[in-house]
Every structure is written in structure tokens, then in C-alpha cells.
């Protein structure tokens, strides 16, 4: 009986701790009407010094264009393992890309930054279209982009 209670306690603790270690993060990227083809986007995390840490999402299917997302391409080395299961179609102008994923709490309020690189065929590449600190304070606050992004918002 006592042993069972201990086991249950341990299980509950494990469950609670795992809940407190990760959470669902929603990234919402709305594009401007920039007058071009579908945009390629890379959303990724860097540390405070701007060094690449982790890919969150890549929009766009043709690998040969990935090098135009130059900040991300450099950091990730475009290695398949970095974005496996984290990619989808390119985003048409004026449309909104919404991505939800599971992210460890350790990235939040720890000096990490969210970056979005964008590229459109025959138009300029925007390294760091958006750069924002990844903090609890920034939740649901829209950030304006410098390139093709109208607003970028995250929530958890």
C-alpha cells in the first residue's frame, strides 16, 4: 500500500514536471501584399548573440531555394535533420501562416530570440525580416516585419 502510494506520487510528480517543462507555442505570421509569388519563410531560435539554436518552421518545398533564407541556411547548414517534420508549403501574399508546436520552457525568458527570414522569387531576400526576444512579456504582442511580413505574433 505504501509502495503503491509512493509509485503514484512519483508518477504524478513526473507528469507535473513534464507539463511544466514544455508547452504549446503558436506562431502567427501575416504577410503583406508585396506583389510577388509565394514566400519562403524560416522561423528559428538563436541565442542572445544571434547564434543559431533550433528550427521552428520552414515554409516552402523546393530545397534549392532554401539558401535564400540566408540567416537560417547558414545557422542550420540546411541539414535535413534540422527541419525534418517542421516544413510546409510556401505562403501566398496577404495570407497568414499559423504554426503550433511543442517547445521546452527552457527557451522562454532565457535570452533567446525568434528570427524569421523570408525570400520571394525575383525579389530581395530578407534575413531577419523579424527578430524578437522570446519572452512571456511578448506574448500576443504583434511585431512588424521589415520585409514581406506585416505582423508576427507568438503565444503560449
Amino acid at each position: 500500500m505504501k509502495r503503491l502510494a509512493i509509485t503514484l506520487c512519483l508518477m504524478a510528480a513526473a507528469l507535473l514536471s513534464s507539463q511544466s517543462y514544455a508547452r504549446d507555442v503558436t506562431l502567427t505570421t501575416e504577410l503583406k501584399n508585396y506583389g510577388g509569388d509565394g514566400a519562403y519563410l524560416a522561423i528559428y531560435l538563436t541565442n542572445a548573440q544571434g547564434q543559431y539554436q533550433k528550427t521552428l518552421w520552414v515554409a516552402g518545398k523546393k530545397l534549392k531555394y532554401y539558401k535564400h533564407l540566408s540567416g537560417w541556411a547558414r545557422g542550420s547548414g540546411q541539414r535535413k535533420s534540422e527541419y525534418d517534420g517542421l516544413s510546409g508549403a510556401s505562403v501566398t501574399e496577404g495570407k497568414t501562416l499559423t504554426v503550433t508546436l511543442d517547445l521546452p520552457d527552457t527557451y522562454i525568458d532565457a535570452g533567446f530570440q525568434l528570427h524569421v527570414d523570408t525570400a520571394v522569387e525575383d525579389m530581395r531576400d530578407n534575413r531577419n525580416d523579424v527578430v524578437v526576444p522570446f519572452t512571456s512579456e511578448g506574448v500576443d504582442k504583434p511585431n512588424n516585419g521589415r520585409g514581406y511580413i506585416k505582423t508576427f505574433t507568438y503565444s503560449f
Partner: peptide, 14 residues
């Protein structure tokens, strides 16, 4: 020619 980030000492030109 792609420039490094202005304040990244580990950056390089491509």
C-alpha cells in the same frame, strides 16, 4: 555577396 550580422564576431561573408 551576403554580409554577416553587424555585431556578430563569429559571422562571415558568403
Amino acid at each position: 555577396l551576403v554580409y554577416p550580422y553587424p555585431d556578430d564576431p563569429m559571422g562571415v561573408y558568403s
